[in-house]
Amino acid sequence: MNRRALLGLGACAAAVAACPALAQGSDKPIRFILPISAGSGVDAIVRAAAPALGKAFGQPVVIENLPGAGGITGAAAIVKAAPDGLTLGMVSNNHVINPAVFRKMPFDAINDVTPISVIGATPLVLVANPKLPAKNVQELIALLRAKPGGYNYASSGNGTILHLADEMFLDEAGVKARHIPYKGTGPMMTDMIGGQVEMGVIALPAVQQHIKSGALRAIGLCGAQRSPAAPDIPTIAEQGLPNYAVEGWFAVIGPAKMQPADVQRVHGAVVAAFGSAEVREAMDRQGNVIRPTTPEQAASFFRSEAARYAALVKKANVTLE
């Protein structure tokens, strides 16, 4: 082998060493598993960020929807994957709620995953059919108090974050209403608009057009602060329930036992992607708030949220087989 060939090989080796993505094989795609159906809020978030994620990783990003069992099906696929940084997932509140709701779990939602970052949150909003004679929180509470159990509220399913957000409201207000669970937000929203059920909590991006058209009435935002995407909608907290605060967060995770270097590499790419101008703009349009955490903060957050929802599930007596 002549001197020129050796120099050429040395240059190639230096280029690979300087690019972590190439060193790990840029021909291998990043598999992003979503434990929810296409068209949901988290699905829209990841698909909007997919081009920026591919650029940040230096590798193709393939999104795979694996819905089922309240998110357990997709999460199980993440848990079983090799901890090499090539299989990741985006999960939401339901991931830490499920252990308190289901009698049996095929994995440990806390210890069998590697939290990478809690990326941000989607505002939730309590809405009502406009025929319901209540325009704000205090009027709704008075209505429910006058007729205990006489009104219905919808959710996207037993034990979901939307169900628990409703239960939290009823608990804080000291009132009662009947729960009508649906299989997803689509049919739930259709029946709220049609008047089959009077009210329910839902993600702001999913329902904002119906609020603007008058098909549904916004009673109050569920978060601690108003949303820049809907600044005219007051929070439930500022309408007399100061301890009420819940939002739909979303987080990137990987399988357990990922190497620290892989965790940092993935974290850096994810933060870079969601910090890019195009993704920020897309998130603003959807009404999402982006505030990425460190892996350590994400792990602590998962544990605290699991404890918080476990207490609420027990109080609401929600249990699934």
Rank of each mutant, 00 (worst) to 15 (best):
R226F: 07
R4E: 15
G268E: 01
A11T: 12
A316G: 00
H267C: 00
Y244D: 02
D232S: 10
L140I: 05
N129I: 10
V313L: 06
G174P: 03
V279I: 07
S300A: 15
G74A: 13
T293L: 05
G85K: 00
T190A: 14
G39H: 07
V266A: 00
A215D: 15
V279C: 04
M105C: 00
V46T: 06
K80D: 14
E238F: 07
G174Q: 04
A21I: 14
A282G: 10
T319F: 10
A13D: 06
S155N: 11
T293H: 08
G223T: 12
A50P: 06
M1A: 14
F32G: 01
I202E: 05
V79R: 02
G54I: 09
V263G: 03
G89H: 11
V91W: 13
R285W: 01
A307P: 10
A237H: 07
V289N: 10
M188G: 07
Q264F: 00
P83Y: 00
N152M: 13
V16Q: 05
V79I: 07
V79Q: 00
P29M: 09
V137K: 01
A269I: 00
T73G: 10
P130A: 03
N129D: 03
E198M: 08
V313R: 09
M90Y: 10
K147W: 11
A128V: 09
F57S: 03
P20A: 10
P67N: 13
V271H: 02
I78V: 15
L170V: 06
V289I: 15
G275K: 08
A48L: 01
P133T: 00
L66R: 15
A52D: 10
L216G: 03
A154C: 15
A56T: 12
M105Q: 09
M258V: 06
I36R: 15
A56G: 13
E238R: 09
Q264P: 01
D284T: 06
L132V: 15
N93I: 11
V101L: 05
I219L: 05
G8I: 09
A299N: 11
V91E: 14
R145G: 04
C222F: 04
R291L: 01
A299M: 08
G54M: 10
A128H: 02
K257H: 09
I161T: 12
V318D: 12
M188L: 09
G194D: 07
I110P: 02
I33M: 08
T73M: 13
G85N: 03
M90E: 13
A224G: 14
M192Y: 06
I116P: 06
P295K: 10
V313A: 13
H163V: 02
A316S: 02
A218T: 12
V207P: 02
L124N: 02
I236F: 08
N288E: 09
R47D: 00
A49D: 02
R31A: 15
